[in-house]
Amino acid sequence: MSVEPEVPIVQVEEVRENPVLYKIISSDNHVFTISEHAVKLSKTLWDLITNLGLTAENALDNPIPVENVNGKNMETIVQFCERHKYDEEEPEYTNYIREFVLPEWDRQLLSIDNEELFQLILATNYLDIQKLMDYCCRVIGDMAKDKTPEELRIIYGIPTDAEDDALERSASDSPGPSG
């Protein structure tokens, strides 16, 4: 496992509290340190750690490469996981989520443009972080509040039926791979 020596290591303050630390390398070679409690929020990462047999002694010497997540999203994810590592387990998928009010800290963290949010959701989905996924979806769901269908098309970049039809027509008119 090769690590570029000039790549900065992103330290999270809270990480220092925890004696067991892991290193994660993003697709653009940024290195992140994350505590054991925080990394457990990602099912994908925790499965990797247990499968690789990483322990407190060798964890920092064996960084985990995550090819599908860039440094920007990984930074957000690490911050989120460190912030919520000691959260109590939430109730099952019930009205709790609907009645839940997104904390201001998380709302600030997720105040990013739609494209970035979309990329963050893809990364969250890959790393299988249920809580962050719920929060991201809550932010997207909130965008729909009190909006007309026309406004929703603009917010989410949704094509109209006519635009869909035009795209389909152009797709069917264009020559196939053989033509």
Binding site: P149, D161, D164
Partner: peptide, 12 residues
């Protein structure tokens, strides 16, 4: 909101 989203496009 779901009803509004349903009106936006064929896929939804």
């Amino acid at each position: 909101e779901i009803a509004s989203l349903r009106k936006t496009c064929r896929s939804l």
